[in-house]
Design a protein around this nucleic acid. Sequence first.
RNA 1: GGGCGCGUGGCCUAGUCUGGAUAUGGCGCUUGCCUCCUAAGCAAGUGGUCAGGGGUUCGAAUCCCUUCGCGCCCGCCA
Length: 578
Amino acid sequence: MAGEDPFTAFRSEVEAALRATLQELGAELEDLALERPPEGMGDLALPCFPLAKTLRKAPNAIAEDIASRLRSTGMIEKAEAKGGYVNIHVRFDMLAGSILEKALSLKERFGSGEPKGVKVLLEHTSVNPTGPIHIGRARNPIIGDTIARIMRLAGYDVTTEFYVNDVGRQVATMAWGVKNLDIGETADRDKDDHRFVSYYRGANEKADADPKVLAEIDDLLYKLEHGDPETARITRETSERVLDGMLDSLRQINVNIDQFTWESRLVEDGSVDEVIAKLVGSDYCHEDEGARYLELETFGISGRETKWVFTRADGTSLYTTRDLAYHLDKFARSDVAINILGEDQKLGMQQLAAALTTIGSDRKPEAVFYAFVSLPEGRMSTRKGTVVTLDDLIDEIVERAYEEVRKRRTDLSEERMREIARTVGIGALRYNIARIQAEKQIVFKWEEALNFEGSSAPFVQYAHARACSILRKAEKQAAATSAVAAVTKLTTYHERELLKLIARLPSVIADCAEGRKAHLLASYAQELASQFNQFYRYVPVLRAEGDTLEARLALVEAAKWALGNALGCLGLDAPEEM
RNA sequence: GGGCGCGUGGCCUAGUCUGGAUAUGGCGCUUGCCUCCUAAGCAAGUGGUCAGGGGUUCGAAUCCCUUCGCGCCCGCCA
């Protein structure tokens, strides 16, 4: 079973043994549906209820039959029947030896999967360069970056990409503002994303009030798409400056983006024209007063309007048209193209998928949708200025974390306290977003965002710091070989439970990667930290001696790697002290 | 009008895809634990018609139907 992690190996063994046993009994199950039994009842459980009908026996009688026949070989220690389940216990020493060996040798790679040889292009964030990132949008980079990190560890070859929307009405509006408004230095912060949003808001206000302004913006839009150098220069420059501001905010929350595709490039290099030509050739293409559209009713698109317009009456392209060109571009560069999107994009993606079919593409984009973050008083809007910016949240949460550090530590330098405050604050911010299932709405509340206890980043980070503290004081690293030999010394409940949980990391990473789910890792990290804290409370490490000390140190180090790697995938720093 | 998603103790949340053992954690509140590896911790208690109703099933938070509430969408915007 090369390449399998120890727990998965155990699972495979159990599955094979169960299938053999079932065959002996003359029964069959397509899906064994192995579960994780309640605490203290073993490590894997087979529900026998589905067998009751075919075998015409009570579920628990079947469970007893299976349990008594199941041979304890390899990693299977024993099987017990209880309440209609076969509870299977792992041979702890084998699992423990194997896990400690893996964790201590793989270190920051512990939890990883085999290289898949699959190129993943993960697009996330891609917010319009019109103003600072607010916390509604911040869900996008956090989910995106977390999934990217998880998939990397799981063995995928991941590249993250930001699609810069420097074409279209919003940029033309911004350009109009820059050309015509004299807003001066009214920005709330010395940063270009905060500075330029004033032009954007101002231009929107004027356009709403004055049709002439709207016409001027239309004119700029036309010029932009037809290569007017002056307009292109203004939009490129403002887009770049606003983008730099946004990227600075993202860096602060540990989000770095590998690549950028500028929407304007797809217009300039003819990709958009190419895709328009293909669309025009489609059987579903129609024309209405010069504007061209696809009729998508047959693709299961419903609602008031099933027309999908891809060129305006003046011949210019639309956002979705360019997005289609972008997707073809992404497909050419990857095996899997994933996109992190707000739920408002759902219909758009459906339409895009349909449009792809009409032009004969066999590739489908994959999307992770998330619901919006709103404020207790309602939704956020960049245009209206009803936002809490990511920058404000970062400042506030790091400051709050600093106060907490200062309360607890009097022995640290100012610089060190600031460092820890940043680690804890940024961690709390990311964890609070990452821990919630993407499709659930979040109402942002300061008191919750600033919570540093219980189910939070600092809780996990604290466990990590404690592990580091023990290892630091031990003044030597556990020697992997003697530790593995000493696993028989890990006999207490808390040691065993901790080790079994550490053993799950690889399969948790794999599950999160396959399901594109960040929140499950947050739950696991919380559970692992909780288990470590119990171990810490009840099992003395440094006061132990000989083999026991050796084995416990190895366990602490394994926990450190598991915690650290879970934190790493969540994009949180793993502090050695706090 | 139509489509998609969400609804789990006072608050937040896991589990829902792939139906099974007393529904997971946290916050809050009550109460214990620092001569002992960092108390951002540990332990105990409190608190639940899994939105309501119907159905399928030996068994439903989970699947189906329906009602209600909330969010998002149905632009020659992005």
